[in-house]
């Protein structure tokens, strides 16, 4: 397998160990600790809410309330911070735990367990700043398609490439996300992203974590605008405050640290996410602790 192919394959197949714990308010009193949590392996390249029905099936036995809708009202939290459902799982993990891959690798031992602990909560009213989830799986699919339309528009200046997909192809495209079929997914995605004579702009999102929130920037990234169009130049242009006092930023993509010298077009080609965007996580100097045990 070529280096690029393996890179893209690993990007697609990355998985995270996730522990989901029910908010104590949702649980029948006196339940043993192990009954109120479940342990899952979730693809980095998916949305957390796609797995909500599965999680609720696992935990419904100890819930105080009947599960009427497996999507509406349920939300994941991490240390009392809302975990938005509308970003890829891997990006959320990298950003919210303040991942420092090199340090993590240096500390890794054979008995190290890397696990992301999330709390599952329920509230009738939508949380501030979150996208309300009222339409179940269909809404997630529609949202994902809109992401691709945006990405397509940024690349080509119009959404024609995705809008002109046949209905079976369009359906297959989403099914590939659900069924984790990389080969077919890449085939359809490449038809949307390929452009003769180079792209107009690149769909990039920068996720910057501060102590209590996740800030997402969507800059206009036109290759060549900053000379070579490298990641470092983009970050200097978009986050100048992070370079004060000689600070060194360590951008993370798909759980690995990438070089600021990398060409953005190359990074997009290698690490484009399942929603058509290149997600870059930037951890501020005051980052949260990596939850390893």
């Amino acid at each position: 397998m070529g280096v690029v192919n393996e890179l893209r394959q690993r990007t697609w197949s990355g998985m995270l160990n996730v522990e989901v714990v029910l908010n104590p308010k949702l649980v029948v009193q006196g339940m043993p600790d192990e009954q109120v949590r479940c342990h899952l392996r979730i693809p980095r390249e998916s949305y957390l809410v796609l797995h909500l029905p599965f999680v609720l099936n696992k935990l419904r036995g100890v819930l105080r309330q009947e599960v009427k809708d497996a999507f509406h009202g349920w939300w994941f939290g991490m240390e009392d911070v809302l975990v938005h459902w509308n970003h890829p799982v891997g990006t959320l993990y990298d950003s919210l735990v303040g991942l420092r891959p090199q340090e993590r690798a240096a500390q890794f031992q054979a008995n190290t367990l890397t696990m992301w602990t999330l709390t599952l909560n329920y509230s009738e009213d939508a949380r501030d700043g979150s996208v309300p989830l009222v339409g179940g799986m269909q809404q997630v699919e529609d949202f994902w398609r809109h992401q691709w339309k945006q990405a397509c528009y940024i690349i080509h200046g119009s959404s024609k490439q995705i809008m002109s997909l046949s209905i079976p192809d369009s359906k297959t495209f989403w099914d590939c996300v659900l069924q984790r079929d990389e080969r077919v997914f890449r085939g359809i995605a490449s038809r949307i992203t390929a452009r003769k004579g180079g792209v107009k702009a690149l769909p990039v999102r920068i996720h910057q974590t501060t102590l209590r929130e996740l800030r997402t920037l969507q800059p206009t990234v036109k290759p060549g605008e900053w000379g070579g169009g490298t990641l470092g130049e983009l970050l200097r242009a978009e986050l100048p405050e992070c370079f004060k006092n000689g600070s060194v930023l360590r951008p993370v993509v798909h759980g690995i640290e990438v070089s600021p010298e990398s060409q953005l077009a190359d990074l997009y080609h290698l690490f484009c996410s399942f929603d058509g965007f290149l997600h870059i996580s930037i951890c501020s100097p005051v980052a949260l602790i990596i939850p390893t045990t």
């Binding site: 995270l16 996730v18 979730i42 693809p43 797995h51 690798a105 890397t114 759980g255």
Partner: peptide, 14 residues
Amino acid sequence: IEGNFCYLFEAAVV
């Protein structure tokens, strides 16, 4: 690193 002890975790199904 992320796959260490992965057998303790059930693959999530959609």
